[in-house]
Design a protein around this nucleic acid. Structure first.
Lengths: 239, 239
DNA sequence: CAGTGGTCTAGACCACATA
DNA sequence: ATGTGGTCTAGACCACTGA
């Protein structure tokens, strides 16, 4: 085993970092059996719990696979997968260092139409609140938000004007969400979008749709439309 | 405390699930102090390590914040953030149940041009391999791949024809990556893209750019262009 | 059957932040 | 000074799985 750079904090973290470094550097390639727990216990002069904590975390991160009786093995990467973070629009603009504001363009309460029910899982006799917002960065249109809120799940929303806070953060502070589904795609701007965001005809837009549930109850569906200049960025390291 | 549904597996997992259920249900709202470790130790008749394991995981997932002397508190959600998974193109097509094939359209080795260096962090005297591929699903164009490979980091790539395996999986199996950066945006198709994917002029496309490093060395940069019909989908639950 | 990981215990010492 | 969490120990029992 070659020398390794110093590692941080606790002992179990150090073990985690050093094993991970050997995997990522290729010194321990996929399929390689890493030392048994009792061997690492000796190597680091510590108890098995400490080693186990590090290896359990590596296993949860998908870097190793553990098999009883056989040992722990460097995992073969299954998919070139990665994770990307999708932030709240206001926070996103603030992170860019730009002045943020939003304006509610439309706000209607209605029985769920057929189109609504395609967007959010409510029955036809339930009421939804439909909101359309424009988010601005540095006084320029930044994003169009089209949202449905299930009033059966969030009855207080019926009386909320969304003047101080945009619907997104308002809901976030109020309803604990347990599940979300995102869809991201490119789309040509429709007439409504062109007008609101000041785009040319058929300009490409980035569309993010998010549906949110609390337990089994659907809470909200939102469609965020950005001009093509907008980028989603994500940095990701394994584990 | 109200009754809770049965929970899985180990005791520490049960504790994790039950505390999380109370947070997600809103029974313990943001800012609420959850029981001290020694209280949960009593409630579950177990040792502190077992409780600590569950709470440490909740803290790492961002659901609670722990402060010495004060206790553990339900976190106020900072950003309406979520994670999305980006798979390998071949795996993606296979997951759709469609026949997959790919074709290498172009393959050139060259000293890094100015344009190359904007895409991947190499110096002007280093060589890169530029590859263009078309990925097909069910005999129809699915995705255009434009890739640069840093030959200083992956010299074997110079002699690889990418006939059996596409560059993505080939690299994945060969180079352990430690860091990746993704950018996702909408774009109007250029002339090259229109022709390769069979699109109309200026059709909106979803573009995913990924840069990958192994340690500090840049390995590859890839640009995947999809027609607008393509969607990225992600389901996400906290923790 | 033997050896691995999965989980838990009952204690311990320490750092840290409040009071 | 006190009480919390952060970490670790030195054992233990069990389940699984290959030989």
């Amino acid at each position: 085993m070659t020398a390794l750079p110093a590692a941080p904090g606790s002992l179990s973290e150090r073990i985690l970092f050093e094993v991970r470094a050997r995997i990522l550097s290729g010194e321990w390639p996929p399929g390689h059996r890493i030392p048994f727990e009792h061997e690492l216990t000796e190597a680091y002069s510590c108890s098995r719990m400490t080693v186990n904590k590090a290896l359990t975390e590596l296993a949860k991160a998908g870097l190793i696979e553990r098999r009883r009786k056989l040992g722990s093995f460097v995992a073969r990467p299954h998919s070139q997968s990665a994770m990307i973070e999708i932030k709240d629009v206001g926070a996103e603009v603030a992170a860019l260092g730009l002045a943020y504001r939003f304006e509610v363009l439309m706000r209607t309460t209605r029985r769920a139409t057929r189109a609504d029910r395609a967007r959010i899982e409510v029955s036809s006799d339930q009421s939804v609140l439909a909101v359309r917002c424009r988010h601005d960065a540095a006084e320029a249109p930044f994003c169009l938000e089209e949202r449905l809120i299930n009033l059966a799940a969030v009855p207080e929303a019926a009386d909320e004007p969304f003047e101080a806070r945009a619907p997104g953060p308002w809901l976030l502070a109020r309803v604990p969400w347990s599940r979300a589904e995102h869809r991201i795609r490119a789309e040509a701007a429709g007439r409504e979008t062109e007008r609101t965001l000041g785009l040319a005809e058929g300009a490409p837009c980035l569309v993010i749709e998010r549906r949110t549930w609390s337990g089994k109850a659907p809470v909200t569906q939102v469609r965020l439309t950005y001009p093509a200049s907008h980028e989603l960025v994500a940095r990701f390291s394994p584990a």
